[in-house]
Design a protein around this nucleic acid. Sequence first.
DNA 1: CCGGCGCTCGCGGTTTTCGGACATCAATGG
DNA 2: CCATTGATGTCCGAAAACCGCGAGCGCCGG
Lengths: 174, 174
Amino acid sequence: MPREKFDFLIDRMPTPAGEMIVVADAEGNLRVIDWTDHEDRMKLLLDRQYGRGNWSLTPARDPGGLSSAMRRYFKGDRAAIDKLPVKTAGTPFQRSVWKALRTIKCGTTISYAELARRIGRPRAVRAVGLANGQNPVGVVVPCHRVIGSNGSLTGYGGGLPRKKWLLEHEGVKT
Amino acid sequence: MPREKFDFLIDRMPTPAGEMIVVADAEGNLRVIDWTDHEDRMKLLLDRQYGRGNWSLTPARDPGGLSSAMRRYFKGDRAAIDKLPVKTAGTPFQRSVWKALRTIKCGTTISYAELARRIGRPRAVRAVGLANGQNPVGVVVPCHRVIGSNGSLTGYGGGLPRKKWLLEHEGVKT
DNA sequence: CCGGCGCTCGCGGTTTTCGGACATCAATGG
DNA sequence: CCATTGATGTCCGAAAACCGCGAGCGCCGG
């Protein structure tokens, strides 16, 4: 059921872990962030969240100052992403998962089971993993800080090597 | 996929054909209108169009002057509904049907097949009937002016007697 | 012969239903 | 210690059902 159209701003920027795509709305909220080499998956997510053909991306430079903030994060200012304004669509369940993600402190990790407990659905472990994978705002909403109960990295939409890179960048020893 | 919340204003008013419910948004656009004795169906429509739990109704008196306009219509000023601002959700197909409905002149009727032709989908006859039934803004968006090819009244969400009443009120001889 | 009635079927958009996939985890057994 | 297996919750996509119709056909009675 289409509502209204969404016109977003898109920027690209290099990082030590590969080029990233930054998508923001006119109000300066971060809407989507992903790796250039996963652009197809990103478009699929946009289709699902806003409706097929209901969104468009207009190139822009450093929209909302978000690209700059990301640059600072990758340069070493790891708190630069903590307060960034983020706005997402998604089902109530997904949003509650993503909200809980932002409370995981930099440099720490938790398990999918623990995350499920924190949102009050202790048995929705697998569903939490699924919602994690649908997170449109990687890095900033730190889905990479969730790992398996046995300490293994399990999965990551951008590829496991990047998950490892991010965690080490944040001071977690793997 | 819930987006944002919709808060509407609701009013009730008597008419010669039974009590009506008038729902408007803060800008004075008519969003929904229905008969009190079909309130359940109306809520179902709201759920479908705006998402379950994504809308709320706050009582108000004559929001946007819409109730007054309706009163004038029922009193005999049949042109009172012609220019009222109407806003709806719905799929592209439904919206095209509803848009075409407003071009049917008061006092005349057309068939579902003719309506289908007018929106450029001559064979989507049944789909047009379905969209007609989902029209959230009865009377003002005059779905009652569409009848079967053989002249029978076929159907009406508010009950066939009301369809008959409205048509006669508009000067159609049945 | 003609008109009217009722049945059947095709039609097309939307809604609902259903099956399976999945970034898990704990409990087993080798 | 590793591999296997069930229990589990959510969501997506395909498929089926649903209908505010209409045309075509056969049947029947004037």
